[in-house]
Nucleic acid binder design. Structure first.
Lengths: 149, 149
DNA sequence: TGAAATAACTTGCAATTTGCAAATATAAAT
DNA sequence: ATTTATATTTGCAAATTGCAAGTTATTTCA
């Protein structure tokens, strides 16, 4: 019987590969890191640089440059916060939204393809389990910084 | 209700952070990539460079150098294959085994800590589900190269 | 008020990591 | 034998990383 770690390691590896493969959209060829960045901006409401960097566990200086390159690609917009001018607020450009949703679709398509090898009940159980697990990891403050979500 | 992708994205991110945090053992400070490498050598029986690189989806030239650095750290041993002298077989040194199992323990400890916020039944269900999911991804050849395991 | 401390973000720089193209060395095929 | 294919390594140039230090804006509190 596999240990939990083995199960997660294999799954993580595969999902990592998927992440690599799935984030080329049209002309844009994003890295997995950039894809995560886009995703996080997409799902949160006008977050600051600081916030996103911390959520993703990325060094803030590295993050600053990652954002710069996405701005240059016209996927991300940086808006100065009117109430605190040290802060920049991040959002997606229309093009960025399109790329983000396309990546999302590609990922879901692949996942559904994998799910087609499972019964409907098994899929539902899996998704419910992962949801619970994410919540559990959120409560756990042991090893790595808790990431809200 | 979250899409499958959202659930997996959050989980993947968190497990990625865990991977980063959990692979420092004693003096050795490994990257997540090196930890994956160690794990894969550990679980397979005297694999060749080529095999491991492909399993991990790593470019072979990058992989060659990653192995070199692990050899230098005295965690991995490269043995020329007697039946085909182009091939090098990879294995863990005693020290490498120790590091690999220590990482494994650390990961399992953290996972168990997270599991403590779930019922026993929920944990069992989660693990069974992931096992099924891994098998399903193995059958799916759609997007990213299938990874045996 | 107005210096000193703190916070958000950026840049300099040096080290590491990456992948393509080309090289080496061995094996298989014809 | 010569060509072709396979496994691994090296050269090199580009991209990515993180620390230290810098800039600009805000807070603190004497």
């Amino acid at each position: 019987m596999e240990t939990p770690r083995e199960l997660f390691q294999i799954m993580t590896r595969r999902l990592g590969l998927l992440n690599k493969d799935c984030c080329s959209v049209g002309g844009c060829n994003l890295s997995a890191a950039q894809s995560h960045l886009l995703y996080e901006i997409y799902r949160s409401h006008n977050p600051s640089m600081q916030q996103v960097a911390e959520t993703l566990g990325t060094d803030i200086t590295t993050f600053s440059r990652q954002v710069q390159s996405l701005v240059k690609m016209n996927l991300v917009k940086k808006t100065p916060d009117p109430t605190d001018r040290r802060v920049y607020t991040l959002s997606l450009t229309p093009e960025g939204k399109m790329v983000a949703t396309t990546i999302d679709q590609q990922m879901n398509e692949y996942l559904n393809e994998a799910f087609s090898h499972m019964s409907e009940f098994e899929v539902e159980t899996l998704l419910r389990s992962i949801k619970l697990f994410n919540e559990a990891m959120g409560k756990s403050s042991n090893c790595c910084a808790p990431v809200k979500g």
